[in-house]
Nucleic acid binder design. Structure first.
Lengths: 249, 249
DNA sequence: ACAAATCATGCTGTTTTTTGCAATAATATT
DNA sequence: AATATTATTGCAAAAAACAGCATGATTTGT
């Protein structure tokens, strides 16, 4: 077997599976592991792939996921934010949750729309505050370091005293059967309070989070009035959610 | 499974859910917790995420310190901030006001000092939140657009329920005879409430503001326990303040 | 065509990396 | 303060990488 043939086979394999083990290639090509190692070394030097301990990975793999995936996610979140923004009505009184998706929504709020916004999230409050026609009311409390938002009894108490038209919330995990779940108990408590403080609740959620779950439960799917993903409203992935009387956008 | 693959999975998870537990990752990837710990350590060193006790959190969220670098009279304010910082005691419960001078104080708070900080100011809260050993409690309320801080009855009510060791406040104007004054009535109300909620009040004030006044009065000089300027404590400009039983630094 | 040189390949022993485990220290939580 | 959880460290086994060498094939120069 010629060297070039092997190189081609290796590359095809890497492109196809994103990664490959040296031992596997050695078996496939029926050559010694040393030869494979040398082949991969050359291909790495030619920048055709990236050699790692024990194997090789496609070039697109690392770039794609780390940064590109982030941009990709941002694109999805922007789509969600735009759909959500279409629900905003002039003069409305709403609640906006923390999280990157909600932050994206805040960013694209048109500056001419007049709103009263409650929030628990410091970044969301900062961003809202830059909108000239938005009145911002921050629900105070102990600030959760990572989430950068108020938690605790003080926050839930304050929430118990308000009733907004719409709340736009995010979630860590969502599953048709298990509903909305979170990693953090404190967060769940405030999210429950948010839902209670809202006439209607809108969930913003990228499709990647669909069908995932964690320890603590916020609510069932049926507690949500509208669920917004970046997907088309009749996408297959949303099939299971149609049983739960939730409006899909 | 290649290390790179694990890294990729970890990153995706962190980006998606903002935070993950090492134990969860270990289960997902079916490797030992030690391996996950080492992986996360590497990713942290590569600045792909931030390792925290028990897990990892996404960067994108924590590193959005929108630094406003063009602060007026930054040099003087830094001097003031350093003097003020020397008053901080480990385990103290304090209040920090809004304004650029107070923000400078927050920036130079040593990361090893353990504090409980109340504040009304969004930027101050954000900055405080980046200090690992500071517990931040935000006093909520309607956010004043310009000042980026809570005002109104809700804020003053909340303040009436606390008593801190020290409060560090700024002021718009100060005069030996007229005391502390402000341009804005709402701000005066909360400042009064802050002073009432403090055992001791420390005023941070650049010398430029000395001997100036405005419409609404916050308090007399004698309500202030300590006044910090960038000047030497026996400077001529402070002469008139010595009659008011205030500690000058 | 023949010898010399070059290259590719696999083998061997050694070094490095990775991984899991156990004991101990540090840190949260109650 | 006591307990549980998480980190750190050292260690050992396994896997992988590496360097050097021998063999055989291919190319090159004469």
């Amino acid at each position: 077997m010629l060297k070039e043939e092997r190189h081609q086979t290796i590359l095809t394999h890497v492109e196809l599976h994103n990664r490959v083990l040296l031992t596997d290639i050695a078996e496939i090509l029926d050559v010694s592991i040393d030869t494979v190692r040398r082949d991969v070394k050359e291909l790495d030097q030619e920048s055709k792939l990236r050699k790692v301990h024990g194997g090789a990975i496609s070039l697109g793999f690392t770039t794609n996921s780390a940064r590109n995936n982030n941009i990709y996610a941002l694109a999805q979140k922007t789509v969600i934010a735009e759909k959500a923004a279409s629900l905003l009505k002039n003069g409305g009184v709403i609640f906006i949750d923390g999280g990157t998706t909600c932050l994206e929504l805040v960013r694209i709020i048109p500056s001419d729309i007049q709103l009263t916004c409650f929030t628990l999230s410091l970044p969301v409050a900062m961003e809202l505050n830059s909108k000239p026609n938005v009145e911002v009311i921050f629900i105070g409390g102990k600030i959760a370091k990572e989430a950068q938002m108020s938690i605790g009894a003080s926050a839930t108490d304050s929430l118990s005293e308000i009733k907004v038209d719409y709340s736009f919330i995010g979630t860590g995990y969502v599953d048709p059967a298990f509903g909305l779940t979170e990693f953090d108990w404190d967060i769940v408590q405030v999210k429950k309070a948010i839902i209670k403080a809202s006439k209607k609740t809108v969930l913003l959620c990228i499709s990647e989070k669909l069908n995932s779950q964690h320890r603590y439960k916020t609510c069932d799917i049926k507690a949500i009035d509208t669920m917004i993903t970046e997907l088309d409203s009749n996408a297959d992935q949303l099939k299971l959610f149609r049983n739960y009387d939730v409006h899909l956008i």
